[in-house]
Nucleic acid binder design. Sequence first.
DNA 1: TCTGGGGTCCTAGGACCC
DNA 2: TCTGGGGTCCTAGGACCC
Length: 359
Amino acid sequence: MSDPHHPWVLHVDLDQFIAAVEILRRPELAGLPVIVGGRGDPTERAVVSTASYEARAFGVGSGMPLRVAARKAPDAVILPVDAPAYTEASEQVMATLRAQPGAVVQVLGWDEAFVGVTTDDPEAYAAAIQRAVLDRTALHCSVGIGDSLVRAKNATDFGKPRGTFRLTADNWLEVMGHRPTIELWGVGSKISKRLAAHGIVTVDDLARADEAVLAAEFGPKMGPWYRQLGRGDGSAVVDDTPWVARGHGRETTFQQNIVEPADIEQAARELAAQVLDDVVAEGRPVVGVGLKVRYAPFLTKTFVHKIPTTFDRDTVVAEILRLVGRIEPGRPLRLLGVRAEMQMPDDAREGHTPTRSGW
DNA sequence: TCTGGGGTCCTAGGACCC
DNA sequence: TCTGGGGTCCTAGGACCC
């Protein structure tokens, strides 16, 4: 790094984003345990989207059943998810990032983005981002600074809340080496267990692992990719190509399991109508449909089918109903999902849309 | 404690073709 | 009369992320 004027990857992550947006419009909630999830009713089947730091102190976290969260933090304020409000706040945050000098912005979700920038003082640049976002939206964020996407992403947690942290090839193993592989972005519970079966427990282990062993276990692409993840290596290119959705899906979890074929068909028709509305808004032909079912009691999750078809409302609905016919009769159904896949525009087919393997 | 809803990408294996 | 090898497409399923 002899040239101090260097391209950096910054990972900007809003602090307790959803809870923060809710507190902004209800200032009396500041300092209280706040939980946002489902329709705000802890007696329903739903999970926590975000908990405020005060609620987290009670052991409440994202993905936890709302019922459990309410028991852990009995005095918490529980609010329904208001997606349009978060979309609106998110757009303001992203516009602020794009307005920073020299910034290339790749949005990852409602509350996070990569920012690529060439600067000789990334910490100062990160502080300017934090100030600008706070001035415009009254929201706080943390910034991870890295020399690759993976390192920037992993750095952010060490900067929370409201801070920054720098993770580069120089300190990656020192900071991350002794940690379990599940802390890596892209390694979840299943992969970390399969890695452990090969004696690969820490990030250090993964960084030194035999690529042939990994390829045999995870395939020719994922195997080597996991090792790269262990090293923190990979792309440092922030891609601001506008996102093109591959498809749209709708799913619903029934508050009470359903069994009757007529109920199932009715639910499928409603989901299909919503999916088709989304697809029509995108204006691209449908090239496939899928159905996801989850039977009670839990975790039997199956993508039943996907068929090439062409966009035509009646045809798509007919295909979906044909798939519904495959659902095992008499088994209680707790979740139903319908998905439509769309034809990609020609210029987005090869190399112009961000992909996970772009890391 | 008993698990939402929106997505993306990868892999295995069968069908089919030459 | 027992059966190669390579390539591509499609489906099903698994895993991950926010």
